[in-house]
Nucleic acid binder design. Sequence first.
DNA 1: CAATGATCCTGTCCGC
DNA 2: TGCGGACAGGATCATT
Length: 267
Amino acid sequence: MPELPEVQTVLSGVIPKLGSKEILGLECYYPGTVIDKLSPQDQAFPARLRQGYRRGKYMILEMTSGFALIIHLRMTGKLVWDKDDGEPKAHERAAILVSGGHRLRFIDIRTFGKITLLPSARVHEALPKLGAEPLLQGFGAAYLSEQLAKSKRPIKTALLDQRVVAGLGNIYVCEILYEAGVNPFRPCNELDSEEFARIAAATKLILAQALMHNGTSISDFRRVDDKAGEFQNFLKVYQQESCPQGHEVKKVKQSGRSTYLCPVCQK
DNA sequence: CAATGATCCTGTCCGC
DNA sequence: TGCGGACAGGATCATT
């Protein structure tokens, strides 16, 4: 599922495709996929891309017209660069039309993904409250400890909370906690500063490695050019039978989600 | 306020 | 071969 490394990988592919081409419009083929916050007389198109950036799992495309698109892939969303034959493909919920006969197809089997069109000045208020960017300096052992030291929540649940850390999902949280040697069920308030430090370091390490390998193609994640990521080849516990030490990996339900862990390596 | 559960949705896989 | 059910899980909203 698209988490920070996958979203960043998709965005890094989208930016050069749009390049200096003209963005002609935004079409919606499934009710609710496009959230249009403009009044009818507003002119968002045509425009060019001014800048594209990521915040948590959100992609933000700011256009020269002063308007912006916020794109969230949720679970099955994909952005596919393709020739424009004027027809939406299977599961295509929306499309960004581009000059030169191309379109960026928003393909999303389970329809949870969203594209929001709004004035650039309102992007900040339109995004939900998000925690620290895990790859930036503000995120570290001190931040995690400050955020979580008093919480009784299991550490895994806390790391999935986008208000604490922006961009983590089920796959990377499982991998991070294995790397840190911390059991996902441990309550946050029972973790010591050394364990918070290991979790923070593991977060940065795992995300950097995943980014280097263009994300994880579990199920059907693809880049804009339809290439798969490669980090699935480096997973140590998620959907694995045994950990690198040869211990059996356990799969257990934790607040409705599958948690993969090695009970021997993770204390 | 914190924690849990339901909800949205469809393709895939498993057992019978 | 077909069918029902479990499962996948990000984010939001409702409930306890």
